[in-house]
Simulated assay, not measured.
Amino acid sequence: MSVVFDRKAGEIGGDGWNLMDTQERSKCSGRSRGLVWYIGTAACLGLLYLLLLVVILSYVVNNDKATSPQGTDQLQFFTLGQTECENLTLQWIQLQKRYNKLSESTQQLQTMFSSKNAELDAIRDERDQLKMDTRNLTKEMENLTLQGIQLQKRYNKLSESTQQLQTMFSSKNAELDAIRDERDQLKMDTRNLTKEMELLQSRFNTVVTMRDELQEEVKRLNLNRTEKLCPDDWKKYNNKCYYVSAQRVSKSWDKSKKDCEDRGAHLAIINSRDEQDFVSKFYDRTWIGLSDKDLEGHWKWVDGTDLVGDGYWQEGEPNNDRNIEHCAEVSRKGGGWNDMPCSERLSWVCNLPL
């Protein structure tokens, strides 16, 4: 391998310096080029050290011959070699500096290369992810396309249905307008009929009032014509006249019965709860026209009719205490009838049917 060293440029060239052909160098990165420079620099330094060693050996061998004419030539050669060696040393120092710079550049390039590789890996991962996303998006787009076709079909059907509904709506609107017109007419007729009805109702009320007044007048006239009045000091109740004995006046049952007969009436005959309440409200104890004097336990009214039903006896009555209780009284405190001795002196009530 031939080597040519340019002192001015401080560069090394040669046909054998390019350890890699042009096609291979074009394929390599900055790291390969730095490696070539490193190998070339190392070879140059080896040659320099070899040359220096040869010069030193020549100087030692020919030291004794320095005084001869040949020694003078050798001294010149040695001086030339020393100068050349100094130049080579300076160039070696420069090459060392360049080597250091190249080493730093190589490290920087190595770091950048690693960083770029990491970025490249990240980009590749991102590319793969984008490819996967693209495939997924493609599938989604295809699905959306199919859905869009289906939606379009549905939209077309809905459009047809909408048109039909619009037609029906227009028809119904026309019918609704007709119904509204008819409703308005009916409202107007109703208002008119309401006014007429109110007028007729007012007339009817007037007629009813007049009729009621006439009926009351007729009843009053009929009552004056047919009504029977009770005697003085008698009380009228349910179409009967009642005579109530005076206060602090009392008689036996037989004398009370005779007093009623003398007045053209009889001791009170009670046929209802209302009559029972009416007769008992005057005195606490009052004779009524009921007895079993003819046959014990067979109670009869003074008009000869039998007692129908259970009557309105108090609880436990009649009991015919001591076998002398054969006449009936009304006890307001007891709330019903009670059998008593007929000789007992009590108030009495007579009644007379109208």
Rank of each mutant, 00 (worst) to 15 (best):
T83M: 05
Q166V: 02
D73Q: 10
G264F: 04
F113K: 01
I123M: 11
V349I: 15
Q247F: 04
L75W: 06
Q108A: 05
F204E: 14
S103P: 00
T79Q: 08
L295S: 14
C327A: 15
G34Q: 13
D254G: 01
I56N: 04
A43Y: 08
L130C: 06
D233P: 00
Q150Y: 10
S331G: 06
R127D: 01
Y283R: 06
Y283N: 11
E213F: 08
K235A: 04
D73W: 08
T134M: 10
Q76P: 00
S202M: 12
A43I: 13
Q94E: 12
K333Y: 07
S115A: 14
G30C: 04
G309F: 04
R183V: 10
G10L: 08
R31Q: 15
L109W: 02
R31C: 07
P231W: 01
D294I: 11
A43D: 11
L90V: 13
N173Y: 03
E126F: 03
L214E: 15
K195A: 13
T167S: 12
L146P: 00
P231K: 01
D184T: 03
L354R: 02
W348S: 04
R31T: 14
K300P: 00
E175G: 01
S32R: 08
F278G: 02
W17V: 15
D294H: 14
K219M: 12
E175D: 14
M168H: 12
E140P: 00
Y312M: 12
K172A: 04
W287C: 07
N320P: 02
D232I: 04
K255T: 14
D189M: 03
E216V: 11
K255M: 11
S202W: 03
D121Q: 13
N239K: 05
L199M: 14
D15P: 08
L130G: 02
E119C: 03
T305A: 07
E11A: 13
V55H: 14
Y59E: 13
E344Y: 03
W313S: 06
N224E: 13
V36D: 13
T67V: 13
R285K: 15
K139L: 09
S105W: 02
K139Q: 07
S331P: 03
Y59H: 06
G289F: 05
L35T: 03
K300T: 11
P353R: 07
Q150S: 13
R332T: 05
Y283I: 05
S159T: 15
A328T: 10
I123G: 01
E196N: 12
L346G: 01
S252M: 00
G311H: 04
H326L: 06
R220W: 07
S256F: 04
N224T: 06
A9C: 06
Q276M: 14
L229G: 00
C350A: 06
Q76H: 06
N205A: 11
R191H: 08
G297W: 05
I149K: 13
L53E: 11
K97R: 11
F113M: 09
Q70V: 15
D64A: 05
K97L: 09
W337E: 05
I12Q: 02
G304M: 04
M188Q: 15
W17N: 11
G336T: 03
L151W: 03
G309Q: 07
